[in-house]
Simulated scan of single mutants.
Amino acid sequence: MELNEQKYQELLSFIKSEILGEGDENVILDRDTSLEDDLGVTGIDADKFILKFSRKFNVDLSNFNIDSYFEPEFSFWLFGRKKRKRFTIKELENAILTGVLK
Rank of each mutant, 00 (worst) to 15 (best):
M1Q: 13
E2R: 14
E5V: 06
E5L: 03
Q6L: 06
Q6W: 01
K7I: 13
E10L: 00
E10I: 01
E10K: 01
L11G: 00
L12E: 03
S13T: 12
S17G: 09
L20S: 01
E22I: 07
G23F: 09
N26R: 12
R31G: 10
S34D: 13
E36L: 10
D37N: 15
D38E: 13
D38S: 13
L39Q: 11
G40L: 05
V41A: 10
V41I: 14
T42R: 13
G43V: 07
G43W: 11
D45T: 01
K48F: 09
I50H: 09
I50D: 07
I50Y: 06
L51R: 14
L51V: 11
K52E: 11
K52M: 02
F53W: 01
R55M: 11
N58M: 07
N58R: 10
V59R: 05
D60G: 07
D60Y: 12
N63Q: 14
F64Q: 03
I66A: 01
I66K: 00
S68W: 05
S68A: 12
Y69K: 05
F70Q: 02
E71D: 14
P72F: 12
E73W: 01
F74P: 06
F76K: 11
F76I: 06
F76R: 10
W77D: 03
W77F: 14
L78V: 13
R81F: 03
K83D: 10
K85I: 11
K85C: 01
K85M: 12
K85Y: 09
F87C: 10
T88H: 03
K90C: 12
E91M: 06
L92R: 00
E93K: 00
N94L: 03
L97G: 08
L97P: 08
T98A: 05
G99E: 07
V100E: 05
K102N: 14
K102F: 07
